[in-house]
């Protein structure tokens, strides 16, 4: 059933998100052409307004994608549509996983499209090549790579799960469910920030007090343990959020 949920979730969000990202692609191409025209290059007003429109559009698409995915979860689970979603013969965790995976997929697509667009328009080819070179030729430490990869995966999971847990808690209220969801989100983010600082300080202590003879390897160790600390924090939050959402769906559903 998980596969079917994923399939229908993809169908439900793909159309809208595809079009808004297509708009960014189109805008990038038009921008690329306009930039190469001499008359446009000379006109400062034209250049400035073009950049303004572009920057605002990219921000709108970036934020819009996240809001759309969060709203999709809210609408499909906790409004009238929830009467169908919650009477399908599937487990609540399957709802969370299917929606989460599709949201992550679109966040990645969104990130890649926006990154590629900015690269194409704003970064000269030479600098871009240098950037790629610096990444590929850097002396990467294995542990560091693994940690970065893990941080990316856990970080990606944390994004939709934070939205979903905020919305799930928000819908427990009788009125202003969305408002409460936003408040819960802000609170969670702030608590995470504070905890993040605490974890960083704690994880730096042992290595800071350790052997400082070799300064490069010592700083790498500090970075490693800092990352390890915040990774652990993220991981714990993800598991906690997941269980909280599941509990609310199973026991505290509050459909109007």
């Amino acid at each position: 059933m998980l596969g079917k949920l994923i399939k229908h979730e993809w169908k439900a969000v793909a159309k809208t998100l595809f079009f808004i990202h297509l708009a960014i692609v189109a805008m990038t191409l038009v921008g690329k052409i306009l930039v190469s025209i001499k008359a446009v290059q000379k006109s400062e007003i034209l250049t400035v307004s073009m950049v303004m429109v572009y920057v605002l559009s990219v921000i709108a698409v970036g934020i819009g994608t996240h809001i759309y995915l969060a709203m999709r979860f809210y609408k499909n689970m906790y409004t009238d549509e929830g009467y169908l979603s919650f009477t399908l013969p599937v487990k609540s965790w399957e709802h969370i996983v299917s929606k989460g995976l599709i949201a992550i997929a679109w966040m990645v697509i969104d990130g890649v499209v926006i990154f590629a667009s900015i690269m194409l328009l704003a970064i000269p080819k030479q600098e871009y090549m240098e950037f790629v070179n610096s990444i590929t030729h850097a002396n990467w430490e294995w542990l560091y790579i693994v940690e970065v990869m893990a941080a990316v995966v856990v970080g990606l999971c944390a994004v939709p799960l934070t939205y979903y847990v905020s919305i799930s808690i928000g819908q427990l209220f009788k009125n202003h469910k969305m408002l409460f969801s936003v408040i819960v989100y802000v609170v969670i983010k702030n608590v995470q920030q504070v905890l993040g600082v605490v974890v960083t300080v704690i994880s730096m202590l042992p290595s800071a007090m350790g052997n400082m003879d070799d300064s490069t390897s010592a700083s790498m160790t500090v970075v490693n343990s800092m990352m390890g600390g915040s990774l652990l924090l993220q991981l714990v939050s993800c598991v906690g959020f997941f269980l909280a959402i599941k509990f609310i769906m199973d026991k505290k559903l509050n459909l109007n």
Binding site: M1, K4, K7, H8, K11, A12, K15, N76, D80, E81, G82, Y83, L84, T87, L88, P89, V90
Partner: peptide
């Protein structure tokens, strides 16, 4: 084994009728 008709309209507005049939066919 329970087929439920709620008081609310629970259908997705953007769907066409045949898409709903696909949906029901997939899950039930």
């Amino acid at each position: 084994i329970v087929s439920y008709l709620p008081e609310r309209t629970y259908l997705n507005e953007w769907m066409k009728v045949y898409e709903l049939l696909d949906y029901f066919e997939d899950f039930y």
